[in-house]
Computed example of a mutant assay.
Amino acid sequence: MATYKLPISSDPRQRMTFNAGGMNVSLTMYYNPIPDGGQWFIDLADAESDEVLVSGYAIVCGAPILKRMTLPFYFRLIDTSGLNLNPYGGNDMGSRCELHVIEK
């Protein structure tokens, strides 16, 4: 199983394309400041066909993200402090919290 750290930042709206498990994927990650502390979400699409795979999926630390889907990969949001806390506010992403892609 290959694991990749995605180049994310605290920018409240980010878009990137990557290849995992032989699939070209377009990832959009965005921050919603409501409720207090906010929440990060992802949208996924097939980068070649633009078919939407996932829309508006909240990401959290400590749990495999989208592992039960039939995609050839899943995500894990890692709290580098070791406390396993979700990102609080918009500034934790890309610093304390890292997003990793794990191929199945």
Rank of each mutant, 00 (worst) to 15 (best):
M1V: 05
A2E: 11
L6P: 02
P7R: 02
P7W: 08
P7M: 06
S9M: 08
S10F: 03
P12T: 09
P12A: 01
P12V: 09
R13N: 14
Q14I: 05
Q14D: 05
Q14V: 06
R15Y: 04
R15D: 08
R15P: 00
M16G: 13
M16V: 04
T17S: 11
T17F: 02
T17D: 12
F18D: 10
A20V: 10
G22R: 06
G22E: 07
M23E: 14
N24E: 12
N24Y: 08
V25H: 02
S26A: 13
S26C: 06
S26F: 02
L27Q: 03
L27N: 02
T28E: 14
T28W: 04
M29K: 10
M29P: 01
M29R: 13
Y30D: 09
Y31K: 01
N32M: 10
N32G: 03
P33F: 09
P35R: 03
D36R: 06
D36N: 10
D36C: 02
G37D: 07
G37H: 07
G38N: 05
W40E: 01
W40S: 02
W40H: 06
W40N: 04
F41G: 00
I42M: 05
D43M: 03
L44A: 08
D46N: 15
A47H: 01
A47P: 10
E48V: 13
S49Q: 02
S49H: 03
D50Q: 13
E51H: 09
E51L: 10
V52S: 12
V52I: 13
L53A: 05
S55M: 06
G56R: 06
G56F: 08
A58V: 08
A58W: 03
V60Q: 12
C61R: 03
A63L: 07
P64T: 06
P64F: 00
P64W: 01
P64V: 03
L66R: 03
K67V: 09
R68S: 15
M69L: 14
M69P: 02
T70G: 11
L71A: 10
F73H: 01
Y74M: 05
Y74K: 06
F75G: 03
F75V: 08
F75W: 04
F75T: 08
R76D: 13
L77F: 00
L77V: 06
L77N: 01
I78R: 11
D79M: 04
D79C: 05
T80W: 02
T80P: 00
T80N: 13
S81W: 11
S81I: 04
S81K: 04
S81Q: 07
G82Y: 06
G82H: 03
L83C: 07
N84K: 11
N84T: 13
L85C: 10
L85E: 15
L85K: 12
G89Y: 04
D92S: 12
D92Q: 15
M93E: 08
M93K: 05
G94W: 09
S95V: 13
S95F: 12
C97G: 04
E98I: 10
E98C: 12
L99F: 01
H100L: 15
V101R: 00
E103R: 09
K104M: 07
